Simulated scan of single mutants.
Amino acid sequence: MRIRIAAALSAVAATALLLSGCAGAGSPSASPTPSASSSCLLDAKPGKASDAVTLEGEGKDLKVTVPSAADVDKATAVERTVVKKGDGKDVKPGDLVSVQYRIVNAADSAVLDSSSRGSDDQIPVLLDPQQQSLFVAALECQPLGSAVVAAIPGKMFGDGGKSVVVYAQATKKLSTVADGTAVAPVDGMPAVKLAKDGAPEITIPKADPPTETKISLLKQGDGATVASGDYVIVQYRGVTWADGKEFDSSWKRGTPAQFQTTGVVTGFKKALEGQKVGSQVLAVIPPADGYGAQAQGSIPANSTLVFVVDILGTVPAAPTQ
């Protein structure tokens, strides 16, 4: 399965350029994500621009102001000032964390995006260098609980890029395994057994595949509900009904994946939308809701697909600027 995501932050769509050359290429069969690593990719240092930014208020009332003296455009690299040192373990690329943040235009301090659309002014963020490099640059290699200000000159986003300032605080490390309550399996569906790390083993029944998409819960979560167009963070494994062979797995890559519900095949979309964070979903997707008569990578034409998906987080799409 080939999963792609548009940049979650429309105002800073080119964030991957920040860490260009620092992170390895991702799997060709999914959105690229890093293997968990303790090494810093950028380890930005404080500078005149980041030191000059002021913060007022807290929570949803937090205001980030960039004085003209900061002159972020003239910064030669990403600058990062730690305004509060946390006491947790260091945050690293590949982590899934809950984040409070504000992203503002360095020219006028106008808010471009914020975590205020999330629950309790928090949004789950997968620190993926290819898709969320802005947050990687801000949060990596600082203890959990640290609050930072990052000043990012426009040149880091490529030609015509606009300078931005990011306030971010990673408040909690989130589970990378569905933690909902176990639900009794449904007769006729594939059998699922979980390894110690939570990775699913899928056994296909000796029967003809269904002609309509079938979805059942293996675990019932109690978190936020996934809405259409949300960006979801998941662990998943996919196999074909015909032979049980794996064709894609976030578990194999060693880190969750993230994508928009409207950017995947119809059956996968049906498996996600309306479900709660913390749930584990089993989906059997016939060709009509999958890839139809078209072969897709290692997936033969007219394949029925079977997925086990752990829903770890969901993020409403950022408002259009």
Rank of each mutant, 00 (worst) to 15 (best):
A8F: 11
L9I: 15
S27I: 05
P34V: 10
S35D: 12
A36Q: 14
A36F: 14
L41G: 08
K45V: 15
S50N: 06
T65H: 13
A69D: 13
V91K: 10
D95A: 07
N105Y: 03
V111H: 10
V111C: 06
V111Y: 13
V125Q: 12
P129W: 06
V149K: 05
P153N: 13
P153Q: 12
F157W: 06
Y167M: 10
Y167R: 12
T171P: 02
T171D: 11
V177A: 14
G180Y: 01
T181L: 03
T181K: 15
V183M: 09
A184C: 03
G188T: 05
M189E: 04
A195V: 01
D197I: 04
T203G: 00
I204R: 05
E212F: 08
K214G: 01
A224K: 14
T225K: 12
V232M: 09
V234E: 11
R237C: 03
T240E: 04
A242M: 01
A242L: 02
D243Y: 00
K245E: 10
K245P: 00
E246N: 07
S249D: 10
W251C: 09
K252C: 06
T262Y: 05
G274K: 07
A295Y: 00
T304W: 00
V306S: 00
F307C: 02
V309M: 05
G313E: 04
P316M: 03
P319A: 15
Q321I: 12
